[in-house]
C-alpha cells in the first residue's frame, strides 16, 4: 500500500508543482491521474520514487518511509517501484535484452552488471516476460530498431523485472496511435492484476483513463480536485480539473462503450480509499 501525505514540491524556480497532496493507493488498485499539462502529474509520481526530491510531506510504501531514506536505502526502495515512461526512455543503443535486464540493476553488483553476468533466474524471467508481451523473437534487436508499441512493451517488461510492488506509469500512451494505446493500457492493467500491483498511471487521454482505471484522481495546479470511481467523472468534474470546455463528446465515448471490442475493466468495487 502506498500512502502519500501532504506532499509538496516547490522547484528552485519558485513554481509550486505540488501543494499538499495526500493519497492512499491500496494493493492491487489501478489509479489514473489526470489533469492539464503542468498540473503536477509528472512531479507527483517522480516524488514517489524521489527522482524529484519533494520539498515537504511523506511517502510511505508499506512500512518504509521513502522520504526519509538515505542514498543506499533509497536505491533499495526504488527496486520495489517499477516505472514506465513517456516516450519509453529505453537506453536506445542497448539491445532489448539488455534493456530488460537493466531492470535488475538494483539487485546485482556493478561488475556483474558491467560484464552482463546476470543470475540465470533473471534471464529466465526476462525470457518469460518477453514471451508474455510477445517480444521473445526480438531479444537481440537494438532498442532503437523497434516500433513505438514494441518499445513501450520493453519498457513495461523492464519495470516488471524489478519485481515491484507498485507501478509508476508516466503517460504511457503519449506517443502511440489509438489502437496501440489501448493495447498497451490493457497490457499494463492485466499485468498489474496478475501480480496484484498497485499502479499510478499519469494519462492525458480522459477516455482511456475511464476505460481502464477503476479510480481516477484529478489534479489541478498541484492539488487534488477530484477523487472517485471512473463512472463518477461528469462534465462538471472535468471542468473543475481542466477548465471550461464542451466535455459531452469526451464522456459519451465511454458511456457508449466502445466499438472496437475493448471491454471496460469491471468497475466492480472502485475501492476508494479516500485520502481526505
Amino acid at each position: 500500500m502506498l500512502v502519500i501525505e501532504g506532499l509538496t514540491k516547490r522547484y528552485p524556480t519558485g513554481d509550486l508543482a505540488l501543494d499538499g497532496v495526500s493519497l492512499t493507493v491500496p494493493k492491487g488498485q489501478v489509479m489514473a491521474l489526470i489533469g492539464p499539462s503542468g498540473a503536477g502529474k509528472s512531479t507527483l509520481i517522480r516524488c514517489v520514487n524521489r527522482l524529484v526530491e519533494p520539498t515537504a510531506g511523506a511517502v510511505r510504501l508499506g512500512a518504509t518511509e521513502i522520504t526519509r531514506l538515505g542514498d543506499r536505502a533509497l536505491r533499495r526502495a526504488r527496486r520495489r517501484m517499477g516505472m514506465i515512461f513517456q516516450e519509453y526512455a529505453l537506453v536506445e543503443r542497448l539491445t532489448v535484452m539488455e534493456n530488460v535486464l537493466s531492470g535488475r540493476l538494483g539487485y546485482v553488483g556493478f561488475w556483474r552488471s558491467w560484464f552482463r553476468r546476470f543470475p540465470l533466474a533473471d534471464i529466465e524471467e526476462a525470457f518469460r516476460l518477453l514471451a508474455r508481451v510477445g517480444l521473445d523473437h526480438m531479444v537481440d534487436k537494438r532498442a532503437d530498431a523497434l516500433s513505438g508499441g514494441q518499445r513501450q512493451r520493453v519498457g513495461i517488461v523492464r519495470a516488471l523485472m524489478q519485481d515491484p510492488e507498485l507501478l509508476l506509469v508516466d503517460e504511457p500512451t503519449a506517443s502511440l496511435d489509438p489502437k496501440t494505446s489501448r493495447q498497451i493500457m490493457r497490457l499494463i492493467i492485466e499485468l498489474a492484476k496478475e501480480r496484484n500491483l498497485a499502479a499510478i498511471i499519469n494519462i492525458h487521454d480522459v477516455a482511456l483513463a475511464q476505460l481502464f482505471a477503476e479510480r481516477i484522481v484529478g489534479l489541478h495546479a498541484g492539488r487534488i480536485v477530484f477523487d472517485g470511481p471512473a463512472a463518477a467523472l461528469t462534465p462538471e468534474v472535468l471542468t473543475t480539473i481542466y477548465g471550461e470546455e464542451d466535455w459531452s463528446a469526451t464522456i459519451r465515448k465511454v458511456e457508449d462503450g466502445d466499438g472496437d471490442g475493448d471491454e471496460p475493466p469491471s468497475v466492480e468495487a472502485a475501492r476508494i480509499a479516500a485520502a481526505d
Binding site: N49, L51, R75, R76, A77, R78, R79, M81, G82, M83, F85, Q86, E87, A89, L90, V91, E92, L94, S102, G103, R104, L105, G106, Y107, F110, S113, W114, G155, R158, Q162, L168
Partner: peptide, 20 residues
C-alpha cells in the same frame, strides 16, 4: 529520460554511468 529510467530501477551511481 534514459538516465532517469536507469536511476528508477534502483541502480547505483556507477551503474547509472555504465547503463544510462
Amino acid at each position: 529520460s534514459q538516465a532517469e529510467a536507469v536511476r528508477a530501477t534502483g541502480a547505483s551511481w556507477f551503474q547509472l554511468l555504465a547503463w544510462g
